Structures are given as structure tokens and as C-alpha cells.
Amino acid sequence: MSSQMLPAMLSGALLGLGLCLVLFRAPFMRGPEFSERIEPQMRPSAAQSRLLLRVDAPGSMLGPLGRFLRGGLARAGVRFPGIGSGNANLALRLGQAGRAQSPLEFRAEQLLWAGVGFGVAASISVFWAIGRTSNPLLPAVVSLGAACFGYLLRDHLLSQQIKRRERKMLNEFPALAELMALAVGAGESAAGALERVCRASSGELSSEFERILNRTRSGTPLIEALAEFSARTTAMPLVRFTDGLAVAIQRGTPLADVLRAQAQDVRDLAKRELMESAGKKEIAMMIPVVFGILPLTVLFAAFPGFHLLSFGL
């Protein structure tokens, strides 16, 4: 068997396996499952208020492919419980990123990224191996590495999205806290101040406040809704804000002073971070000056003297 035949046979086997999977999972090739047959006769076990629906949140972009992968991942999670580990943490991270996806939908999206990486790397490896004598295991290793890279890259992008969203919420927090302090000082309650702030502003933090209000309108106490938001975010100023607001509501302490103090704390934190960032950038700017511009300056200044000395010798 020549070295050109092995990549061709591997590509043909993968193509045939993919076509068989698509054919066997087609609607006309499989009968309805037991849960699908009894679903029209069953009432939903947990009714949810329409106020809690995230209409404006982005949904799944995979369409029918996402439903296909979601069903396969759900059955795999039932048969192999170890595969579904970490779904609670993933659901928390998706909530922090403001996405209306379920963990299974995100896993399906990760598998799609891994498949794209595997396909691109396999195609490049096959075209590169044509006409060359190389180790046949190298294309397989490169393809598997690209698949793992695509899978992990999607998770890394989710982490970056969480950081950007929390940075936006921290930037919006001082102004919204001042608005809440003005509303509370004018006689509004905590829930009324939150509602007024949501009507007067827009942004990531406003959407979180609106989510808290929707929870309270559906019957959840305000303190419990604030605790859920505190558990969902990792920004310590927002955690202190929700905890201080809950304590102030429980004990009846004045809210306006608490909100103004927390807004000032966040402004001071932003100033400290700006000074730290400026100091780091100042040190980083010394690298091209010391290793790039300064040697050239010394060379231009000393070269005429060395040239004259060479003539004198």
C-alpha cells in the first residue's frame, strides 16, 4: 500500500461514516421515541412565567444541526454520566456571559468547532502529503490536535466574553448606583428604584437589573433575586452591592448613603486600575527604547569617532 492510499482511504471512511450517521438519524429512518409519544398528553411539570423569558438574548445558531447534536449529547450523557460532568458550572458561565443557551447546546457548538478544525487540518494534511513520502500518522495527529484546539478555543472565547461583559457592567455601575441613590432619596423603594433605573438606562447591568425585577414580579422575593445575581457574577464590587442592598432592605438602613459609598468605591477602584495599567505600559515602553532606539543612538554618535580613529591609525 502506497503512502498516498492511506489518507485517501481514511478520508473515504470518514465520509462514509458521516453519511451513514446522517442517513440513520433522518426522520424517516427512525420512529418516535417514548418521550415524544407521550409528550402531548403530559402537562409541563414546572410552569415558568413569561417575564423570565430572555427574548432579546441570542439563541442557538446551529439550527437543525444543533438539535441533532443536542439529542445525541443528551443520550450520551444518560448512558455515560461522566460526560455530563461540569454542566452546572457551564450553565453558570453561560448566564454570566448573558447567553440563552443550554449546556448541551454549547457542547454541540464546541463539537462543531472541533469538527471544523478537524476538517480543515485533515484537508491541508492530505493535500500536503500528496506526492511526498511522509509518516502517515502525522496527518492524523495534526487533525486531532486541530480538533482539540477548536474545542478549547470555543471555551476560551466564552471566558473572554464573560470578562468583557463584567467589565462593561463595572463601567456602568457608578452611574446606575447614583441614579438609584437619587431615586431612593426621593422616596422610592428598592424595587421602584431598580425599575426607574431600568427605564432610564440600557446596557448589560440594566439587563441584569431587569432580570432581577422579572424574578420579583414572578413571585420571588427581592432579597432572593439579589442573592441569585450575587451568585451569578464574579465581579466583587457587584457582589458587595447586592449584599449591601439585601442587608439594607432586611435591616431598614438608609439605602442612599450605601449606594453612594459603593459608587465611590467603584470609581476609586477604576482609578487605581488605570494607574496600574499606566505604570505597566510605561515599563513596557522602556523595552523598545532601551533595546532598540538607545543602541542605534549610541552607534550613530560613536561611529564618526571610530571612523576617524581608523583613519588616524
Rank of each mutant, 00 (worst) to 15 (best):
D155S: 13
G145A: 10
G18Q: 05
D56K: 13
Q161G: 12
R215C: 04
D243Y: 00
L294V: 09
F173E: 01
R79Q: 12
S310M: 14
A146H: 08
F106W: 13
V247E: 14
F149K: 02
P174A: 05
L51W: 12
R260M: 05
S201A: 10
A88D: 12
N87V: 03
V22N: 01
A227Q: 15
G279M: 12
F241E: 01
A146E: 08
E178Y: 08
D268Q: 14
P254M: 02
R215N: 08
A147H: 05
F28E: 12
A57F: 03
L137Q: 13
Q264R: 11
L157G: 02
L205Y: 07
L238D: 01
R132S: 09
T242P: 00
A47V: 07
A231G: 12
R267P: 04
I124G: 01
F209S: 02
R165P: 02
L269K: 05
V142L: 15
S206H: 06
P139S: 11
A121Q: 00
G119E: 02
G86R: 09
L313R: 14
F68T: 11
R167I: 04
G77R: 08
A74N: 05
R251E: 05
R93V: 07
G150D: 10
F80D: 04
F106M: 03
L238S: 02
P44V: 09
A8V: 13
L10P: 00
L158D: 04
I287F: 14
R93H: 04
L69H: 05
I130A: 15
V197E: 01
L104W: 06
L259W: 02
R165H: 08
S310F: 10
L138Y: 11
A97K: 10
N87G: 06
R70M: 04
L259I: 05
L73V: 09
S123F: 14
R50K: 07
Q110D: 07
M61R: 15
F34A: 15
G115A: 14
F127K: 02
E33T: 15
E195C: 03
E282A: 13
K280W: 10
A108E: 09
S143C: 08
R215H: 10
G305L: 09
Q4H: 12
V22E: 00
P40H: 04
E172H: 11
G131W: 07
R272P: 02
L62R: 13
T253Q: 09
Q250N: 08
L53R: 15
E282R: 14
M286Y: 03
F300Y: 15
I38R: 14
A129V: 00
A74Q: 14
L158N: 03
M1I: 05
A91D: 07
A227H: 10
M42K: 15
E188T: 06
P136N: 07
Q250R: 15
F28R: 15
G31L: 06
A88S: 13
A270F: 03
